[in-house]
């Protein structure tokens, strides 16, 4: 029972991070119907820069700030270099390949600069040895912190999208890009903003995940991208609440299967879940059906 609870708490913690990444994927999907296949490397850049800067003695907050700015910048550059030029030809999926290319490039660059070995990730949030007892199970305080931070950010994002002017802009562009442009909404700025925020969310998620796992390496992030995509799809592409629920559910499922069986089995289950949901209910649990335009 204690083991079960520990797995559930660990699952909630990583699940919240999946939701965070999924929200980042959703944001650019809303504004451009595109998402970054190299997002895994953005997670890695966020975590890697934080770890390396702190190791060089940079102040913790400053290190995190620099890492997040870098993550946001990466996505802006991705949009300008690998997405916009390729969206001109309609129906082309070249952007899938080119964004993956950005991810592969960043992975190569990180291996070159920081080496291919895993780098130890410092204690940014509390100490890795600090634990709390909940219902008899010892839970790392870091897990709890990661969970709380992720859920709060998802909540704030939801508030931002529903209440702020920029949030209205994002939703208007998501609804109908041309109409939004006619209504005087600065579509270009909204699109860039969505990419910046997507990058920052990925950076935060990278730091939080590395805090739990304790290390970061250049190949880090791809698994997280895929699990976050599963969360986004299962929750319904375009639904932030759906992504949170699906993310948490997926995290718990993954940890339970990994704990009782094996990590590879957990990933296989997540993959099968993705195939089944897409085949049975392609709009996800909370998403709306997309209508065809002729």
């Amino acid at each position: 029972m204690v083991f079960f609870l520990q797995m559930v708490f660990a699952g909630l913690s990583v699940g919240a991070v999946y939701a965070l990444i999924a929200l980042g994927l959703n944001l650019t999907f809303w504004t451009t119907r595109v998402l970054n296949f190299g997002q895994g490397s953005v997670l890695m850049i966020g975590a890697m820069l934080t770890a390396v800067l702190i190791a060089y003695g940079v102040n913790l907050l400053l290190a995190v700030l620099i890492a997040l700015v870098a993550a946001g910048l990466v996505l802006v550059v991705t949009e300008m270099v690998a997405i916009r030029p390729l969206l001109k030809a309609s129906g082309s999926m070249g952007w899938v390949v080119s964004t993956l290319g950005v991810g592969v490039f960043l992975q190569g660059l990180a291996s070159l600069v920081f080496g291919t070995q895993a780098v130890a990730f410092p204690d940014v949030l509390f100490s890795s040895s600090a634990t709390l007892q909940i219902f008899g199970a010892w839970v790392s305080v870091q897990y709890i912190a990661v969970f709380v931070i992720s859920v709060v950010i998802v909540g704030l994002m939801e508030l931002f999208l529903r209440r702020s002017t920029w949030g209205y802009g994002v939703r208007a562009v998501a609804h109908d890009r041309e109409l939004a442009s006619l209504m005087g909404i600065p579509v270009r700025k909204v699109v860039l903003l969505s990419f910046v925020v997507s990058g920052v969310l990925a950076g935060v998620a990278g730091i939080l995940t590395s805090q739990i796992s304790g290390t970061v390496d250049p190949g880090f992030g791809l698994h997280l991208l895929i699990l976050a995509f599963v969360a986004a799809v299962v929750g319904g592409m375009g639904s932030a609440v759906g992504a949170l629920i699906a993310g948490l559910g997926l995290g718990v499922l993954e940890k339970l299967i990994a704990g009782y069986y094996s990590p590879a089995a957990a990933q296989t289950v997540a993959f099968v879940l993705l195939v089944v949901v897409l085949a049975v209910r392609p709009q996800g649990l909370l998403g709306k059906k997309e209508t065809v335009k002729v």
Binding site: V81, S92, V97, S98, G101, V102, G108
Partner: peptide, 16 residues
Amino acid sequence: DYQYIVYGLILVFSFT
């Protein structure tokens, strides 16, 4: 040595 970097750049730019 630079395989990742080269392949990444090729994927980014070849379509354009």
